[in-house]
């Protein structure tokens, strides 16, 4: 039962990754692409780690996976902001 739930979560996560990657390749400009990457991939990673944490059967490992997700969330939000701000500044020439 738990294994099935884990598999569903992981597959859902992979779906979000796929959507994010397609967005990265297909969307027209940098801001839209960043949007696709950060939003879709963060949720994808969250679902993936949730699935793996269910699969781990060990509270310590699950906690570590959760920590990894939180760290990636913070890092990707901050770096997406930095990239977008850099591009914006270059556009407006300030």
């Amino acid at each position: 039962m738990i294994d099935v739930l884990a598999a569903v979560l992981i597959l859902l996560g992979l779906g979000f990754y796929l959507a994010g990657s397609i967005g990265l390749l297909r969307l027209p400009d940098l801001y839209a692409r960043l949007h696709a990457l950060t939003k879709a991939d963060n949720l994808g990673l969250g679902l993936l780690t949730a699935g793996l944490a269910l699969h781990a059967q060990d509270l310590f490992t699950s906690a570590k996976l959760l920590l990894i997700w939180l760290a990636v969330l913070a890092a990707s939000a901050a770096s997406a902001h930095l990239i977008a701000r850099h591009a914006r500044r270059r556009e407006t020439g300030t």
Binding site: A71, A74, A75, A77, A78, H81, L82, R85
Partner: peptide, 14 residues
């Protein structure tokens, strides 16, 4: 800026 600064603020001790 505030975003990167707050990231650095908690990332460095971690």
């Amino acid at each position: 800026g505030p975003v990167f600064d707050s990231l650095a603020r908690w990332l460095a001790p971690v």
